[in-house]
Design a protein around this nucleic acid. Structure first.
Lengths: 249, 249
DNA sequence: GCTGACATGATTGTTAACAATTTTGCATGC
DNA sequence: GCATGCAAAATTGTTAACAATCATGTCAGC
């Protein structure tokens, strides 16, 4: 899996679709990923097998296999005999994802800080340039994806493939969470925070690096509107503040 | 997912098979999991769809879906047009799994140590009793599984579902690694180490707890024979100490 | 005796049709 | 007007057959 990387690469060149020769199964997975993170597929939306099969020109069997992958990454929900729905991460889930990330990425920051080399520093700086660029272009979506890839880059530099893969999944979930809960006027300051993070990493002090990472992740979380559930299309319970018992309007 | 828990429960009562009414898809997943961890399915073994389908009395489609799940947990390898094979974790993979576990479980130990209550202590002690019991019964397999469940219990007490699920996968992989690389005469002292871990957790000091956890995980790893690859059935390269070029006997 | 092409069998990949289930719409009765 | 039951449509779940691919064994040629 290197979806985020692939996506970010595509962001640079423009469109993601068909920019590389992927096997159809991977292509479909990435297309759907793309659509979910881009909110063309809204949280809660029903995903009908046959429609998707026709859209992509493949059989339902392949769609079902893709569903299993997406469900494993918790980007969709699979309900027996009911079908597949774009995931709607709850506030509790969102909080747990950030908590898990802090737990893991503290360790990542520690390792990266204590194994820093000029070469690696350059790698990180090069990535930060791309982030700044996307931000100044006003390309919000590219900024979110590159921001995720920044964290993935650090995981890679930490030198543990297992952690890297796991974090990739968490970052995808985070992107979905951000898409769901971001403020109406997105105050996207993460690129500044990434600069500060680089400084902390360059200090070589693992405690400083970990503290900065925690602060950064908390900041992302706190910029979200995690106070009340953002009502989905039919979330009457939260709209009217009570458990739905009948269909009263 | 609560496979390990389910399996451990079954261990108590005796056989795992069919001890609970699971949906057939879950049943098959658990049966295969069971067989892999129990080494009835040896690492590298080919898994033929039709044979398994007949064995379990289901269609190939369901077997294929199960394969996707197992492959996602890295318990089998899926090779296009070739089929499914029981995973053969390499030494490097094994080391990375332990490294990742240390990274995560250090944090788990910290959290559990700082949130200990008499009730939770009792929960842990009760589990340790079961471990000792299995050990004195000489039930090696139950001991391995309960040992894994001990770590999973701590993850649960740490209060993060994301971490818990991730760690469950890593523990499953660890079980496979242990099955592959354990010493001929298994010196299974982990139950003693778990006692020490409990002491460290009860101290309430997060640093002490984390240090003990690291020591424990390193100890498990160091008890394995991770120096040279354990030859599979047809690993002539390691048997004869050279690259295979022809079929010379 | 060894190499390589070829045919054969085994296995995976794919498709389409059928069965089971759920959802939707409509009519009926209160 | 509203709930209930029923029928129809839509959708998922399952199966079996077919196509494509890979592994194996055989045999001609050198």
């Amino acid at each position: 899996m290197e979806s985020i990387v692939t996506m970010a690469k595509a962001e640079q060149t423009g469109s993601y679709k068909g920019s590389e020769k992927l096997r159809p199964e991977e292509m479909i997975y990435h297309e759907m990923l793309d659509a979910i993170l881009d909110r063309r597929l809204e949280p809660g939306m029903k995903l009908i097998e046959e429609d998707l099969a026709k859209t992509f020109g493949v059989s339902r069997a392949r769609i079902r296999a893709t569903f299993l992958q997406l469900a494993h990454d918790k980007l969709i929900n699979l309900v027996p005999n009911r079908g597949a729905f774009v995931a709607e991460p709850t506030i509790d889930e969102a909080i747990e994802v950030f908590s898990a990330r802090r737990m893991i990425e503290d360790g990542v920051a520690r390792k990266v800080a204590t194994s820093m080399t000029p070469e690696r520093a350059e790698q990180i700086k090069a990535h930060l340039d791309r982030e700044h660029d996307a931000h100044h272009r006003g390309d919000h979506r590219a900024a979110i994806i590159l921001s995720g890839e920044f964290h993935l880059l650090l995981a890679r530099l930490s030198g543990n493939l297992v952690i890297e893969e796991f974090l990739e999944r968490l970052i995808l979930r985070t992107s979905l969470i951000i898409a769901m809960y971001e403020s109406p006027q997105p105050v996207d300051c993460s690129h500044t925070e990434h600069d500060q993070l680089l400084s902390a990493l360059l200090s070589g002090d693992p405690d400083v690096a970990a503290a900065e990472m925690s602060r950064h992740l908390d900041a992302i979380r706190d910029r979200l509107q995690l106070q009340r559930p953002k009502p989905g299309k039919t979330d009457f319970a939260s709209i009217f503040g009570r458990i739905p018992t009948s269909e009263a309007s």
